[in-house]
Design a protein around this nucleic acid. Structure first.
Lengths: 219, 219
DNA sequence: TCCTTATCTGACCGTATGGTCAAGGTAAGG
DNA sequence: CCTTACCTTGACCATACGGTCAGATAAGGA
């Protein structure tokens, strides 16, 4: 769907770009972007509404107009991340076997670590602190998701397509290995001496896939 | 040097157990323990000196007598963790090959994740926030450590004892997979429906070792 | 026993933070 | 135009926090 798609829209509407809805969406997006950065870099407790407002380019009071409280803003950030995170599962589903499915899943998760490192950090921080905000997501959406994929893996094992490994622990290993490149990106960068290049990222992907796929008996 | 070690110590010293040095050490230990817990649960920004003091069982002003600032206390906590962390490398060194060395290293790191989950979380949080406090450790001690072990792994590869994988990325995978059980322990517990039992921990260890060792061509 | 030194603690202070509010703008519909 | 509802903002407030300090208490040596 397009914006203002209807046929009866004003013939020559003012070229002044911003309609109410558009402005609102843009402002909210700027706030969420700034908040994700600040929450990732400072943690929930260390983040300040003032800093988020500055980074988003608006006064603090205005920020409170869009998000009533710091918690509400934080929740919005975490929920947004969770959606992206779940979306990576799509590649998992369409696969006929572990080599294709898990390989594509690793690729997708590595790509997320690269593109949304701050999101990954906020998620990690939230979980590390006991998931005060998204406990319900863990108990419902994530739990269902995990059960579903574990069942797929079990089926692949039963069909002799991969070695007999514990599906849950395999999933944990995938999450850990891929998210590590976001959450511990700073450490990796220091050890690497410089930011990871395109080639470095390719090597990382290949390394994770090689070890995991060979580790579950897929060649 | 020992405490009051000399031969001329009072014949019948008061049985009142606490000497100065003993009390100091015990108090400092209590503070560090409490601080580790609070920093892990709330993050640096979310932790308060008052809460740490309460948990350690002494007034806030007294806490400042032992640790001048919140930063100093935090630094002490992080450094303590780092030592434990490095110590796990011992098992790595004494090994003659990857099966023994990496297997023991995984066991050691999993044991640390189980026994010191809060320490692992504080470390993760510190690194995620850009290592403001222990940047120098990353650039010196950890970097040297990593280079040394990578060299060992390269030697094993050259000797045909394991598959040709990138040593650095292999180490990242080991760190990620083992520390995940501490840092994301809450998530794992929720998905598991209950705290991990002894058997669960054994299964986790075995799973990580099986996949990794098979993944690098060791059987 | 007395004196020095380390340890302990309640009360206090300046600052930074999350959040509020009332008044002033500005788009959109009638 | 003019009204209405939405949006923007500087100024303000109460609170909580890290940190200080002066005085109390207790330990150890001479």
């Amino acid at each position: 769907m397009k914006d203002t798609p209807e046929g009866d829209r004003p013939k020559n509407r003012r070229q002044s770009s911003a309609t109410r809805a558009e402005t609102r969406r843009a402002t909210e997006a700027a706030i969420l972007q700034a908040a994700e950065t600040v929450f990732a870099e400072a943690g929930f407790g260390g983040a300040t509404m003032q800093l988020i407002a500055d980074m988003a380019g608006l006064p603090k009071a205005n920020l409170h107009y869009y998000f009533a409280t710091k918690e509400a803003l934080y929740r919005a950030v975490v929920e947004r991340i969770f959606q992206i995170w779940l979306q990576a599962a799509d590649v998992f589903d369409a696969a006929s076997g572990p080599a294709e499915g898990l390989g594509a899943y690793i690729d997708a998760k590595m790509e997320i670590s690269r593109r949304y490192p701050n999101g990954s950090k906020v998620w990690a921080s939230e979980v590390m602190h006991g998931a005060p905000v998204i406990q319900d997501y863990l108990e419902t959406t994530l739990r269902d998701w995990t059960r579903g994929r574990a069942a797929v893996i079990r089926r692949w094992i039963a069909e002799g397509k991969m070695a007999d490994v514990n599906p849950e622990h395999l999933l944990y290993m995938l999450w850990a290995s891929t998210q590590h490149y976001a959450d511990f990106g700073h450490q990796i960068e220091v050890l690497n001496g410089q930011p990871l290049s395109d080639a470095d990222w390719e090597a990382a992907k290949r390394s994770v896939k090689d070890i995991v796929l060979r580790g579950i008996g897929v060649h």
